[in-house]
Amino acid sequence: MIQSRKPAEVLREARQKDSRDKRSRVLAVVDQLVAANEPVTFSGVARAANVSHWLVYADGMREHIEAARCRQSRAADNDTRASATVPAGWKVEQRLLQQDNRRLREEAERLKAAVRRHLGQQLDQVGAADLGTRIDELTADNQRLQTDLAREQTLNTDLTKQLVEAHDDLAAARASIRQLIRAENTTSGQS
């Protein structure tokens, strides 16, 4: 049988779960800051984890944050010692190289943009020139076809006239042959 829980027990369990969630968020934020090599501060952790300042100073949380800060401080000390052994001229050289690299990257981007614009303009001009040439070709073809059509229409008209004349000549020849045949028949019938 399931026992019913009292409201106080339900509330206590909810508060404990909320506390565990907040503490795990604090630990996760500290680990993220360390991994990103960003400074770990109590206020920064509280803000990033969206918890109260009281919680980051609570037992268990404070020790974890302080340990992360100590690790970062030791790493910074090691970096300082390592950079102290590097000659100052190299540091200046490194900064100058970084500035040159940044300037060269910006110039490369600017040149790429200029090339893109120039290519676009060339494509537009080539397209327009090609279209003009194509229009000229089509106009010449159209004129040639119109001339051919006019010539063929004239030829057609002449041939039609010749055909009509040939029909007329044929009809006249048939009529003449019929008259000759009749005349021959009448003369041979009288003899």
Rank of each mutant, 00 (worst) to 15 (best):
L138F: 09
W90T: 08
A84G: 04
E152K: 09
S4V: 03
R144N: 01
Q143A: 15
Q3F: 02
R15G: 02
Q121S: 01
A35S: 02
D158W: 10
T147H: 04
M61H: 00
L123T: 07
L33F: 01
A28I: 05
T80S: 10
D124C: 09
D79C: 08
D148G: 03
S4C: 04
D158Q: 13
A82N: 14
D31S: 13
G189Q: 04
Q16I: 05
A82F: 07
G120D: 00
D136Y: 01
R178S: 11
Q121K: 02
T133L: 14
N37I: 05
N50F: 06
A113H: 09
R23D: 10
Q143Y: 14
R144G: 03
D136E: 08
D79Y: 09
A76D: 07
Q72P: 08
D141T: 10
E13P: 00
T147S: 11
T186K: 09
A173C: 02
D100Y: 00
Q3G: 02
A28V: 07
D21V: 15
E13W: 03
I2D: 10
E9C: 00
W90G: 13
A172D: 02
R102N: 09
R5T: 00
R102L: 10
R102T: 10
Y57M: 06
Q32A: 15
R182N: 09
Q99R: 06
K112V: 07
P39S: 07
A14R: 13
I177S: 05
A76V: 10
T139M: 10
V45Q: 01
A175F: 04
L163E: 12
R116H: 15
I181Q: 12
A128E: 00
R25E: 06
H53S: 08
I65L: 04
K91M: 12
Q99E: 14
E107A: 04
N142T: 13
T85H: 14
E184C: 04
L27M: 15
Q99V: 07
D77H: 07
D124P: 01
R178P: 01
A172M: 05
R144E: 02
D168E: 14
G132Y: 13
S43P: 01
I181N: 08
Q32R: 15
A114E: 15
A108W: 10
N156W: 14
